[in-house]
Amino acid sequence: MIKSRLFNSVIRTLTGIGHRVTERIWRLGAGARLFFLAIIYSGESFKRFQLTMREVYATGVMSLLIIIVSAFFVGMVLALQGYNILQKYGSSDAIGVFVSLTLVRELGPVVTALLFAGRAGTAITAEIGLMKTTEQLSAMEMMAVNPIARVIAPRFWAGVISMPILAALFSMVGILGGYLVAVPLIGVDDGAFWSQMQANVDVRLDIMNGLIKSVVFGVVCTMIALFQGYDAPPTAEGVSRATTRTVVISSLAVLGIDFVLTAFMLAS
């Protein structure tokens, strides 16, 4: 009796694990399918670029404020912390290098992607989820309009376009914030700040790689947000859960992919 109950609970646990794994894999596949469909049907979003423009406005322009303000503070903090460490080794002149490399290589793309997931990603998921809940996507289909071409693809490209722009802005504004703390406030030499930076930041190795990262994050974050919205159960609860999942999955994906990309970039 007890034995069989134990046996049953083991079976149940195993089935539960199996179910979760297959569920994840299924969702990954469905997400990949949506990604390919978005690519295939993206002709429309370029032919009628106005559609994409609207979404660039909604995702990119609307994220400007949070990106610029955060970048400014991140840059200032980096300068403070960097000075604190570097001056112990008598190389506080290298603060420009420290701030710029940290921003251009890592914090620019990564923090932008995290903020993007929170600001634009959730908006995308909620919007698409609600469009689905209120049968707007169904209505479109019934009008012989492909929702993937009309709704998903323009948002996808808008995200992919916006992310590198936001990341570049983040890095630049962050460096300016770092400059303001390092030079007028701490009193690091103005010339040393910029010249050391220029001597050590490589356009191809650092700036281009940062840009590549942000493009990849743009694809990943936007696609996750779109898929979560498109796949959300058409209820209030379903949409709210999907929105949460967008932030959680995007953040984890960005950090994980960042590690892999960095490893590849440093190795080559």
Partner: peptide, 21 residues
């Protein structure tokens, strides 16, 4: 083919399903 057929159809959804944007 389905899209061609749907062009002959109009559908009114239960809650209208107007595009809110």
């Amino acid at each position: 083919g389905i899209f061609k057929l749907r062009r002959k159809m109009g559908m009114l959804f239960q809650h209208g399903a107007l595009f809110t944007d």
